[in-house]
């Protein structure tokens, strides 16, 4: 927890509005939310070594505290299945990021799974920290199939949240996919509320997508917004 404190304090001291994906996930992981295996790298040499270590296929992302909306900016390459693909992707991302880009690159395990969910947190002016659950990925904005509860959450709240979205069947077994581990989902949501209560400097959290790998959720992208 001391490390988490230090990450947040440093970011605030530097005037950052957000934590980088890498640091955001450090915070999540400290509270037990499953995140992707990933390595932060600066140079092509480091990126290639990391990819090899994580095993192909991997994902490569630009990663700094001001890199948000990576997909829209083309700063993300997925399903890189070989060293050559990693090298090509690195060059492309570096070009897109521009000459002035001083940030890092994040090499990440490619999480296989067809189901994308989302959890998040906002600080409501009236009710205080509120945790969200809903469909993730591109469906977040299209369907707006989300529910909220106010932190701290109890397990019966998180179970009600999962029952409460229109697309709740996504959590059941279907098309050969196993049912989602509701206990793990529940723990992750409770943890998000706890992060908010422990750290008043955190204004918002997005964990999107939270990909279901087999039956287990994994935070594939994350963003923590600070109250500055």
């Amino acid at each position: 927890m001391k490390k988490i404190r230090a990450i947040i304090d440093t970011a605030i001291r530097r005037g950052q509005k957000t934590l980088s994906e890498y640091d955001s996930k450090k915070v999540l992981a400290a509270y037990g939310i499953p995140v992707t295996r990933e390595v932060l790298a600066k140079t092509l040499v480091d990126v290639r070594a990391a990819a090899k270590k994580l095993k192909y296929p991997v994902v490569l992302k630009a990663c700094s505290d001001d890199t948000i909306h990576k997909t829209e900016k083309g700063l993300l390459a997925v399903n890189l299945a070989s060293d050559k693909a990693v090298v090509d992707a690195f060059r492309t991302l570096k070009k897109r990021a521009g000459q002035n880009y001083g940030g890092n690159f994040l090499v990440q395990e490619m999480v296989g799974g067809h189901r994308e969910l989302m959890i998040g947190m906002i600080r409501d002016g009236q009710f205080g920290p509120s945790v969200m659950f809903g469909l993730g990925g591109i469906f977040t904005e299209i369907l707006e199939d989300v529910v909220f509860r106010v932190a701290p959450l109890r397990k019966r709240d998180t179970l009600a949240m999962m029952r409460g979205i229109k697309g709740h069947k996504i959590l059941s077994a279907f098309r050969g996919m196993p049912a989602v581990d509701l206990n793990l989902m529940s723990d992750s949501m409770i943890a998000l509320g706890k992060i908010a209560l422990d750290h008043p400097e955190i204004e918002q959290i997005d964990v999107n997508p939270l990909i279901i790998k087999g039956s287990r959720p994994v935070a594939v992208d994350a963003l923590i917004v600070l109250d500055t």
């Binding site: 409501d124 009236q126 529910v147 106010v150 709240d157």
Partner: peptide, 13 residues
């Protein structure tokens, strides 16, 4: 007024 969805969740809780 507060956000509809948050109210909905809070009342359920």
């Amino acid at each position: 007024a507060s956000d509809e969805r948050i109210i909905d969740g809070a009342l359920a809780q």
